[in-house]
């Protein structure tokens, strides 16, 4: 697991501005603290392409030309959230920076997850960009079926709140289509 400070700066909405020395030092300290508590986990499994296409027009568009779909879920684990709660108790600045660190970390982890899935593809197959419930016309409620299918509470420790938020908070669920052709 690596966390790129440039990604962290991007999630802090610094745009093209490089962080000054004081901010760069805080980013670095919080990256180190996060890496100590992150326990990343992931799972994926081939899903029912026709079923998912039928649920959402925008998802069907993303899956156009695909012959299979993977359902995936990744998380940084509960330890990161515990660190975030502790940090929020003492410094809003650190809490904000830590959120950006977490965002950069989970995105990097999902990119790695896609790489893993890609390694298992047949020659000539490629993945399309990942898609999640809550995008387009695919309702957030689809999380229930997606995470249920993956048995996510048990396999990676990710579950849903009553309001359909994933916990631990730094978790990503995704639908990733497979099609023929190069990337």
């Amino acid at each position: 697991m690596t966390i790129d400070p440039t990604d962290v700066a991007r999630y802090l909405l610094l745009g093209a501005h490089a962080p000054d020395a004081a901010l760069a030092a805080r980013i670095d300290a919080l990256r180190t603290a996060a890496l100590r508590v992150i326990r990343p986990a992931r799972t994926w499994r081939r899903g029912d392409l026709a079923d998912w296409r039928a649920r959402s027009a925008t998802l069907a568009l993303r899956l156009a030309g695909c012959h299979a779909v993977y359902l995936a879920c990744g998380t940084l684990g509960a330890g990161f959230d515990a660190l975030a709660r502790r940090t929020a108790a003492t410094s809003a600045a650190d809490a904000l920076i830590l959120q950006a660190v977490g965002a950069a970390a989970i995105e990097a982890w999902m990119d790695e997850t896609e790489d893993e899935i890609r390694r298992g593809l047949a020659p000539g197959e490629t993945l399309v960009r990942r898609y999640s419930p809550g995008y387009g016309d695919l309702p957030l409620a689809a999380q229930r079926d997606l995470l249920g299918f993956l048995d996510a509470p048990r396999t990676v420790g990710v579950s849903l709140t009553d309001t359909l938020l994933m916990v631990p908070s730094k978790s990503v669920s995704a639908l990733i289509g497979v099609r023929k052709g190069s990337a």
């Binding site: 959230d81 579950s159 009553d162 309001t163």
Partner: peptide
């Protein structure tokens, strides 16, 4: 397990 995460990690 209930499949729900208890507070403070979750909302149950």
């Amino acid at each position: 397990p209930t499949g729900r995460l208890l507070r403070p990690a979750g909302d149950c």
